[in-house]
Nucleic acid binder design. Structure first.
Length: 132
DNA sequence: GCCCTGACGTGAA
DNA sequence: ATTCACGCCAGGG
């Protein structure tokens, strides 16, 4: 990263630092919140060059699909999973359920966010012991 | 300048 | 669920 962070880069970092513990946001979402709509790649670029900043919650940034951007099995992937697990964010098959852990900034999003009742009322037959 | 490669996103097949 | 084509744009060759 250049000695002087571009204003854009600073905005991105500010947004990332604003993601609450136990919640996650997508690259695109971060970009938009930083006033850089459509520039998700830039967010990736900034994080990649931000590297050794333990205080930066880079692990809370995921793909729009909720998936981790790193390849399954790669070191950074596992590291991200660990960091997320440490704050109670569960990662299954390399992805996080955005409906449950996605960062919702506006009241509107808070209310309309998790629409379907968490209890799917699935076929009550061969169910498993559930209760989280 | 041109071409390729990304910690990406979206819409279409 | 997967794959593909594009759109995007900063760097590296």
């Amino acid at each position: 990263m250049p000695p002087e962070l571009s204003p854009a880069a600073r905005s991105v970092l500010a947004v990332v630092r604003a993601i609450p513990r136990g919640r996650v946001a997508s690259y695109g979402q971060v970009a938009a919140a930083a006033g850089l709509k459509g520039r998700a790649r830039l967010v990736g670029w900034v994080l990649r060059h931000a590297g050794a900043d333990a205080a930066l919650p880079w692990h809370r940034v995921l793909r729009a699909s909720g998936g981790i951007a790193f390849p399954r099995g790669s070191a950074p992937h596992d590291e991200q999973v660990r960091r997320l697990a440490r704050e109670r964010v569960e990662v299954r098959a390399g992805r996080v359920d955005l409906a449950r852990y996605g960062w919702r900034r506006t009241l509107d999003e808070q209310l309309w966010g998790p629409p379907p009742a968490i209890a799917p009322a699935r076929r009550a037959h061969k169910s498993a012991p559930r209760g989280d």
